[in-house]
Structure formats: C-alpha cells, structure tokens
C-alpha cells in the first residue's frame, strides 16, 4: 500500500538550520531510512545522512524521530499514522556537521579513557581460560553496536554540555562494568568509575536503557551493579573494616 507522507527534516549545519517540510511516497514495509533515501533520490540530493548496514547492526543511522532517539533503519513507517507528520532531527547532544550527521567524536575520546582489558601478568593470549558462567553476565554488554543513542539521550550530558568533561556516559561506564566483572581482568576499576569517569552523575533514570536498540539493560545490569561495587569500596564502613582484617580481593 502506497501513500504520501509528510516528513519534516532538520536541514542545516553548525551555523544554524531549520526543519524543512517534504511530501514523499511511502511503500509497504519501508523504514524511515528508506524514506530519507527516497528524499535524497528525488528532491533533496544534498541531504546528508550517515548509514551503512540498514540492518540495525552498524550503529550509524542514529537520529531522533518524532523526538525519540532511534535508529532510522529500525523504525518502520507503519508505526506512524498515514496523516501524521514525521519529524527527523540529528542527535541533539553532539555537534552537528550537516543535516542528519553529527560529530560523535566525544564518544571516542571517552572510550580511550577506559583502560583496556588487563589480564594477569605472564598470561599470554591463547592461554586465557574461563568458564561460561563467569563471562555470560558481561556478554550482554558485548551486544553494543556503538550507536551512541544512550550517550545522546542521557540527560546528564544532553542537557548539560558542561558535564561532558567529567562524565563518560552510560556506554563507557557499561564498559567499565564489563571489565570489572571480567574473570581475567586484574585492574580494580571502581575508584576510576566514581572519581574519573563520573559514575555519580548517573541518577539511574534509565533513559539509556529505554533507547538502546540492542535492548541491553544498561542501568539494571551495568550501572547499578557498578554503583554497588563502588559502594563496597567507598561507602561501606563495615566492608572497609572487614577488608582491613582480611583481604577480600579476587572473590
């Protein structure tokens, strides 16, 4: 079934921009990214958009559709009414380059602030041995496709540019949690999470979880467990006393 949809797309660059209205054909089974491509092909040849797989796996096509941060390639047009205006804007937490394309380098900078996997000294790659139960918890976090929708939606940076310095954002605190739970990682990352990466900025309001296209339970399974781990070492006098009496490392 084919119909003509009303779309509004943000056009502009870092100097300014505006929402521009388009009327465009929509066919059965199409997703928002298809419509953006049709716009490019028929009436806005210079419309900038970033995409790659069209299968929800590369994390390139993140945008905001009717105000909700989503992947354009996973948002079906039939979730909107035929007479509904569908608005597409670039991610709002990052600097815009052009139209729907933003500069997400903030995320790569933050990624570099997380010390990489640190196996025990002397243990060579190839000699790593671990049981499935010990890794299955953090495997959930490996589903991440680096779309940065969570980073874009987290109000701690979305509404407060000034916090970008202090706060690594949900995606990278999840990375810290992943490594802290890793059976072969030897670094203690709890102080780092709280003191360097700004875990305290997260007020567990779960927007990262709400927008994650991989349905990773970021808040429940990574951020809150990480907060609990931090509380173990920093805010738990009883444990602190216990650790003075006998070493509890390597549990």
């Amino acid at each position: 079934m084919t119909y003509t949809a009303s779309m509004r797309v943000w056009r502009g660059d870092d100097e300014g921009g505006e929402l521009v209205d388009y009327e465009v054909e929509v066919n059965e089974g199409e997703v928002v990214l298809d419509i953006v491509h049709r716009l490019q092909a028929t009436q806005a040849g210079d419309l900038a958009v970033r995409w790659n797989c069209k299968a929800g796996k590369c994390g390139s096509c993140s945008a905001e559709i009717n105000g909700k941060p989503r992947l354009m390639c996973l948002t079906r047009m039939n979730t909107f009414g035929e007479d509904e205006v569908v608005t597409i804007t670039p991610l709002r937490a990052f600097p815009v380059i052009r139209d729907l394309v933003t500069d997400v380098s903030f995320n790569y900078e933050k990624a570099r602030e997380v010390p990489s996997f640190t196996p025990p000294v002397g243990l060579e790659p190839g000699d790593y041995r671990m049981t499935q139960v010990d890794v299955s918890r953090s495997q959930e976090f490996r589903k991440c496709i680096e779309c940065f929708l969570c980073q874009n939606t987290c109000h701690a940076i979305r509404d407060h540019e000034e916090n970008k310095k202090e706060f690594a954002g949900p995606r990278f605190l999840m990375r810290v949690a992943e490594l802290d739970m890793h059976p072969l990682d030897t670094l203690d990352r709890k102080e780092l999470a709280q003191d360097e990466l700004g875990l305290g900025y997260c007020n567990i309001t779960k927007c990262c979880t709400e927008v994650c296209p991989e349905h990773i339970k970021i808040t429940d399974n990574a951020l809150i467990p990480l907060k609990e781990r931090v509380a173990d070492v920093k805010y738990d006098p009883i444990r602190w006393l216990g650790s003075k009496i006998r070493k509890r490392d390597g549990l």
Binding site: G67, T89, R92, V96, D103
Partner: peptide
C-alpha cells in the same frame, strides 16, 4: 535547552522536545 548546550555546535532546535 541551557545556554551551554546551544553554543556547543549542536543543531539549533529550540523546542524542549519534539516528542509527540
């Protein structure tokens, strides 16, 4: 949006949200 967030080269969208 707070001022700092407007000046950081972000897309200029004045609405608080576009959610419908």
């Amino acid at each position: 949006l707070p001022d700092a967030s407007r000046t950081a080269g972000r897309a200029t969208i004045s609405q608080r949200t576009l959610r419908t």
